[in-house]
Design a protein around this nucleic acid. Structure first.
Length: 554
RNA sequence: GCGCCUGUAGCUCAGCUGGAUAGAGCAACGGACUUCUAAUCCGUAGGUCGCAGGUUCGAAUCCUGCCAGGCGUACCA
């Protein structure tokens, strides 16, 4: 609808220019807005004000010149007014909205999709939690955001790949192996001190038992180093399998799991460091190797190879990101916890130093989740190994509620997640508010079948009966779905879709309470069913993008 | 100290990249089930958009300086 009006305005502008009324043909972009107040019409544009400077004319005059030349061939406008400092406000006839309904039914699951991304290859990397323990709530938020964003961008015509980066190399894996081995020793009655820097959680002991079941006492006979190695690999596999299962339960599946260790095994880390050395971007100082990130605006250079010869996390990350672009991605989006924000400048530097534009990397910083139960903070300590896992949350509140709540806030805003509230089936819980719309409509459709209401050739019925205020509101809201998706993709912000759905749901519930769908009039009933079925499709499409189910009954 | 982020109704948050009279939900108060699901709806009340300047026709939104909070500031990840 917006683009339709936009075209009409551009035509009017050109015509005004041709008539010599406007001195310049250099027009700013015509933006169509939805005004806040109903008295200001359905849509508005500020083009007259925007053009004032260029045209050297007062906005009012420009607006008049435009309005006088508006060609409304399809008769969509009921009123066009100039208001305030130079806004042009458009009011639409109810009939102008009817094509939206047809479009929704025709496009069905594709309504809201676009080719905006032009097949641009995008990789979204998210979660990428270390395989040293189960996923917790914070990872859940990242998972929900990353997965939904991937859905939304894919729906918007981007060629999206989801990737999980496995940090299966380095010291923490060693520590993991040692932690498991120590618990394993304890299971064989060999008490040993369990250091603070080992992983404390109960899951370590569980894994140790699995090792025992698998290997019996045989690990006691091999050199400790080998035993720890074995435990490390065993534990990583096991934990990773758990992570995979939890994510699947959460509705998240990755296209690729990328191993950090493989970067070393394939020599990619050495290679990239050598390349950078040749370019003079990696140099030696104090027996360590430094990456010259200051050349790209970072506040200090960063170590890539430590004095002891071990590479840092950054080293493999340079190789990893370079590899992403080698694999053909035009854009890379990383979803990180906000506490890693200090890492962005050096990562951007890495991208630029390896031949890409820093704009090809976007980092979405996801803020902390505060876990509450009935308003009281839930004590969490990763150190002591006491924390609520993502799986706990899914088991307690359900996948739909969890995912939706994670998406009701901008990623840059901290999120209070109240377990008591999330499992409540009341109006305090927005997910049910939205899902209820889908279920209610399903129920109406069931009833309409019972009453043997003829839905054949419903596409051809006369929609003139849809003229109630609430009906027009609903059509208008539904017309805004595609642009909401687009904005969400552009801003990489899935929460817009959640807010949109709550808004549309509200409009439906209002309508439902005021008007009956199944009436005595066959015509009216068929028209309203057509409307309501469209709403159901939009709700379903939106929920699907968020990874939330659209139930037939509740 | 320096850097990044945040500050909007009592609470939790939106605010379409500068538009008109500031928007939801919750909480509070008052109403609506003989109806297609009350997991719903209707109404009332609630604001110096942290503070102070600046930019312009116009600022919650942009620039500067303060104030408050969070995070970061490793040869950890």
């Amino acid at each position: 609808m917006k683009t339709t009006i936009q075209k009409i305005i551009i035509t009017a502008l050109k015509s005004a220019r041709a008539d010599g009324v406007l001195p310049s043909s250099d027009f700013p972009e015509v933006l169509i807005d939805t005004p806040k107040h109903e008295s200001q019409g359905d849509y508005s544009t500020n083009i007259a004000m925007m053009a004032a400077a260029n045209q050297k004319m007062p906005p009012g005059k420009i607006a008049q010149a435009i309005v006088a030349r508006i060609k409304d061939d399809d008769g969509i406008f009921s009123d066009v007014q100039i208001a305030g400092p130079g806004f042009i406000n458009f009011s639409l006839n109810p009939a102008a909205w009817y094509p939206i309904l047809h479009r929704i039914h025709r496009q069905d699951r594709q309504y809201g999709a676009s080719g905006e991304g032009n097949g641009c290859r995008v990789q979204v990397e998210f979660v990428s939690s270390n395989p040293t323990g189960p996923l917790h709530v914070g990872h859940g938020r990242g998972a929900a955001i990353g997965d939904s964003l991937a859905n939304i961008m894919s729906f918007s015509g981007f060629d999206v790949q989801r990737e999980y980066y496995i940090n299966d190399s380095g010291r923490q894996i060693q520590t993991l192996g040692r932690s498991v081995f120590l618990r394993y020793l304890a299971l064989h009655g060999r008490e040993a001190a369990f250091p603070d820097d080992c992983y404390q959680g109960d899951y370590i002991a569980t894994i140790a038992e699995a090792v025992k079941a698998d290997k019996g006492e045989s690990l006691l006979q091999v050199p400790e180093e080998d035993a720890i190695m074995y435990c490390a690999r065993f534990a990583t596999d096991q934990i990773l399998r758990g992570i995979r299962d939890d994510l699947k339960l959460f509705g998240v599946e990755f296209d690729r799991w990328y191993s950090e260790q493989s970067l070393y095994d394939d020599g990619k880390v050495d290679q990239i460091l050598e390349d950078l050395r040749t370019k003079g971007l990696v140099y030696k100082k104090d027996d360590a190797s430094w990456f010259r990130t200051t050349a790209y605006g970072d506040e200090k250079d960063r170590v890539v190879i430590r004095k002891n010869g071990q590479t840092t996390y950054l080293a493999s990350d340079i190789a990893y990101h370079h590899d992403k672009y080698l694999r053909g991605f035009d854009r890379v989006i990383d979803v990180w916890g906000a506490d890693h924000h200090g890492y962005i400048p050096r990562m951007k530097a890495a991208v630029e130093a390896t031949g890409q534009s820093p704009d090809q990397l976007d980092v979405i910083l996801v803020r902390l989740v505060n876990l509450l139960r009935g308003g009281e903070p839930v004590a969490m300590s990763t150190r002591a190994g006491k924390f609520i896992t993502l799986k706990d949350v899914i088991d307690e509140v359900g996948r739909d509620a969890a995912r939706f709540i994670f998406l009701t806030r901008h990623h840059d805003s901290p999120l209070d997640f109240d377990l008591a509230l999330a499992s409540k089936k009341t109006n305090e819980n927005p997910v049910y508010y939205v899902q209820y719309v889908h279920a209610r409509i399903a129920s109406i459709l069931l009833k309409s079948r019972e009453r043997k209401i003829d839905l054949s050739s419903i596409d051809e019925i006369d929609l003139a009966c849809l003229s109630a205020k609430e009906e027009v509101t609903l059509m208008k809201r539904m017309a805004a779905f595609p642009e909401t998706i687009l904005r969400s993709a552009e801003q990489m912000a899935p929460h817009h879709v959640a807010f949109y759905l709550m808004d549309l749901a509200g409009a439906f519930h209002t309508y439902y309470n005021k008007h009956r769908i199944l009436t005595d009039s066959t015509e009216k009933t068929r028209g309203r069913l057509y409307l309501v079925m469209a709403i159901q499709k939009v709700i379903r499409n939106g929920l699907t993008l968020l990874g939330v189910s659209a139930p037939e009954r509740m």
